[in-house]
Design a protein around this nucleic acid. Sequence first.
DNA 1: AATGAATGAGGCTTCATTCAT
DNA 2: TATGAATGAAGCCTCATTCAT
Lengths: 219, 219, 219, 219
Amino acid sequence: MVSKQRRLPRQVREQQVIDAAVQVFSRVGYHTASVEEIAEAAGISKPMVYIYLGSKEGLFTACIHREADRLVEAVRSALRSDATPEQRLWEGLRAFFRFVAGHRESWKVLYQQARSQGEPFSKEVAQARCRVMDEITALVVSGTELPDGGRIISTEDAELLARIAAGAADALTDWLLEHPRETPEDLTMRVMEIARIGAHRYYRPGAAGPGIVRPRTGS
Amino acid sequence: MVSKQRRLPRQVREQQVIDAAVQVFSRVGYHTASVEEIAEAAGISKPMVYIYLGSKEGLFTACIHREADRLVEAVRSALRSDATPEQRLWEGLRAFFRFVAGHRESWKVLYQQARSQGEPFSKEVAQARCRVMDEITALVVSGTELPDGGRIISTEDAELLARIAAGAADALTDWLLEHPRETPEDLTMRVMEIARIGAHRYYRPGAAGPGIVRPRTGS
Amino acid sequence: MVSKQRRLPRQVREQQVIDAAVQVFSRVGYHTASVEEIAEAAGISKPMVYIYLGSKEGLFTACIHREADRLVEAVRSALRSDATPEQRLWEGLRAFFRFVAGHRESWKVLYQQARSQGEPFSKEVAQARCRVMDEITALVVSGTELPDGGRIISTEDAELLARIAAGAADALTDWLLEHPRETPEDLTMRVMEIARIGAHRYYRPGAAGPGIVRPRTGS
Amino acid sequence: MVSKQRRLPRQVREQQVIDAAVQVFSRVGYHTASVEEIAEAAGISKPMVYIYLGSKEGLFTACIHREADRLVEAVRSALRSDATPEQRLWEGLRAFFRFVAGHRESWKVLYQQARSQGEPFSKEVAQARCRVMDEITALVVSGTELPDGGRIISTEDAELLARIAAGAADALTDWLLEHPRETPEDLTMRVMEIARIGAHRYYRPGAAGPGIVRPRTGS
DNA sequence: AATGAATGAGGCTTCATTCAT
DNA sequence: TATGAATGAAGCCTCATTCAT
């Protein structure tokens, strides 16, 4: 609950409302959340929510937009331009995992809530959600490119990989909820370690080869 | 819509209602779905739904229960008892992925809907959901055990791995929605291949070792 | 207020609701009327109104439709087919005035309320209202036709005359409100008498002629 | 929208607000009109409206008052004191029709809106409306008086006639809306012509007599 | 004088749930 | 068994109106 203070400029209030909304939406879900409850959590009255955000759906959309921006920003700012593509991939993914682990409410709203509201829901929300997935996808795509233009995996598989990463990150949300002592950093480390061990274990020297995809030459 | 036929035995009707409910819940989400809509889809009147399932939440719980049963059954029946633990792990996971890919509605209700309904939601639903996760976790745990009682990864990490698997499978739901041409089988293959390549690529012979966890002796 | 009685068939309730709505709308106006108030007057609860009529606007539209039907029916049934056009005109107008005077609530809703709701109001309402005006117009048009196909006044003027009749009838609504002792019959007589006297007084034998409009022959 | 200009004297602002209000009220109706919309149309902020006019109803009342004044003034200034009563009647009515036809917004607010707001509405508005009707009534009464103090029609019928005139004028509002090419002058001419033809047609030399009402002599 | 910020009150609408046949 | 009829409760949203600067 925001400490009550009267007569704040619009921009400040707007952010406070979005803050409150993210908390409430992530806790009880979009439909169960009432605008009244959100308004109270933000320390204002219902009409203000409508004056600033237009509607419950508008409020939700605003949440999605802001959190999407934050996540994209977190990932981007982790990418040093002088790194190798592979380094960039790992650093980007690490930043992504850290964000998800460290901003559970944001992520729950962004991923779970935005996804489980059925068909006839705002196109805008879907688009904002896409921006996040596109960012991760781009990261994976550029990170699995070879210097000669070939690819470790196909572009389509890279997209799939991005989805899997998101889904995995999402699953971790619950795990963190049930293990409150675990820090986001620990979690990230754990995941990386699991990947490393998995890689080691299932590596068979004589297996069908790394499956590299060369760029088509000629036409 | 179920073709109308009067005087069916209770059990049949009940299943028809649950069928309809799974369809509707998966399409529009728990809260947006109205009991009326479900009753219509099931070809009966609203009061019957209440006579059979007690309440909207009871109906939802019934859905979760039945689909959880189905999923667990699908995984279990794929496990040959004469296989090695490692084989059992892969076969179980494959069965799991196949189920998710082939029964999207079931999975959406079981995983997405059951998760995105916030805090004050039925304990029963949470438990049914847990049964699924426990099944996968057991699969991973037994599949990462060494003959001498040691473990490739810790039990806690195995649990984490199970979550990741579920999250990944969940993400594929969307992917399938956007690529209708892909069959569940193709998808499963793709995922396995990605895992294999990933393993190959990031394996470093000199790395810190396989991280095997030995069972504590004594104490 | 309808005497309360439970479990009535839909058709009956629907008419009761419309009855109540016409009363309330005519008394306090469309916007001031609350659905709650109407429901109470009809002896049922709010949701029933929505189940049967869909929305406040739907309810209003239903009122307009029903009252328009009644008015048109009242006028039509007054027209004997073996009368001269001129007789039909007077008889139709008399029936019209009688209806307006005898069903003030119906008329207020049909004419005043439907007219004063601004621009973005249901097209349906406008159409129903038009049916009434068209009926009167047709009456006037056929009543001012000459046996040889010529016309006493032009069609356009006939339309105007119909409007004037409606406007005049409307004004009488207020007058009746302020003179409760006057019966519809008296009022109708008065109006006719005024018209007759007016005709007599302002008739100038040498004036510019009756202004008959002949049908165009040839072309 | 009034071009914005700061620091105008109160009276000017007040008129601008009333101007805007008449426009908006006539377009969308009293209830649908929001104070915000009117304030915007007047180029000032909401609180100013309240400072100047007190309340929404106060604003509406002010509109009615001003437009009633204008209409009365239009009619009065058309009456030459040296004319015969009958001439005054016709000239007054012509001025009245011209005003209605030429100031549709004013009339709609004054007549339609003020009338369709139901029962519990400002007494003040009703009174202002009455002033207009009284003016017309006085006109008709004095115009149907005979030199010897007798009357062509009874006072009560004169009042009725005034109402009819208002209702007819009101109906013409819609007609003008649907025939934008017609000028107020044309319309007035048309109406007069219809009256003249009607008079001619229905005059029967042998009819019951002109129905003159002699003043009661003695008591 | 002027306005951005804020709200109490109230209306429309929906829906899970029950009643009476 | 089966259902049309009915409602209590609650949520979204708007608006006239006021406060504090």
